[in-house]
Design a protein around this nucleic acid. Structure first.
Lengths: 133, 133
DNA sequence: GTCGAGAACGATAACCATTATCAATAATAA
DNA sequence: TTATTATTGATAATGGTTATCGTTCTCGAC
């Protein structure tokens, strides 16, 4: 259904080639650095089209929308409040209970988003070092 | 710590008096209807202050931030993609597993947000009616 | 090939939720 | 009272995203 133009292919390649969680601006810069000059509007439209086609997946992180490869299994995210890093996890128990909750409420679930906020291991270490001195 | 000015009290009252998930604009209109003329900037500042003080709680729903009473137990949300309604649920198993996952990753969790997307019971009924004709 | 329709592009304006600015006002402390 | 500090409200600015619009590309029909 989707038309994979050169621009969209470039966007898709960039996302597929890394494990990053891209936002539109980051992507625009990376594509520009890689020699592709793609208008920012085209990037937004491309991301929307690619997501709708299931070729990438999105997470809404409050401030901005981020995109990542969809060729990996479903997972949720641990978001560090300190450095902004995003770690992935998967827990079948949680998935299962979600389906259970939805059916309890006669709710036809078609997706979910679980964000766990806090401080990541690295930042914890750093802050402990800082406090020692 | 927080200074409960007349404006902030009005905002807090409005939120405490209902089970709605308020966004700034909705709140502004409701307050205006109730006879309070509060600047939109003051509403944003008030919401931020009240949230920081723990007097209300917020959920980030992609497009905009919504606020609700904090005098009720923690819960998560079922968000209807069709009518936009928000239903609440609580599942201790999910809470537990989240703590488990966080500790597994040596991640110091200080909060989370779980949104389950789909179609609510009411919208399902309506769409079934529509298909019959 | 080329004609025409429809999709996609790029530049840029517009949009919308939120935040910053700043002068005026209210609350608080000395 | 006076000085200090915080809050307010109007409005400008910000930032991410979407809409607009004229141009370009794609591709099937002829």
């Amino acid at each position: 259904m989707i038309k994979l133009t050169a621009q969209r292919q470039a966007i898709l390649d960039m996302i597929n080639q890394s494990n990053q969680h891209w936002d539109a601006e980051l992507l625009a810069r990376a594509l520009s650095d890689a020699g592709h000059s793609i208008g920012i509007a085209t990037i937004y439209r491309g991301l929307t089209a690619l997501e709708k086609a299931g070729l990438i997946q999105a997470i809404h992180l409050g401030d901005k929308k981020r995109y990542e490869r969809s060729d990996k299994a479903h997972h949720d995210h641990l978001v560090c409040r300190s450095c902004g890093s995003i770690e992935e996890f998967f827990d079948e128990h949680i998935e299962q209970r979600q389906r259970h909750v939805a059916s309890q409420y006669r709710f036809q679930m078609d997706g979910h988003q679980l964000l766990i906020f806090g401080i990541c291991q690295q930042c914890l270490k750093l802050s402990m070092k800082g406090e020692q001195s």
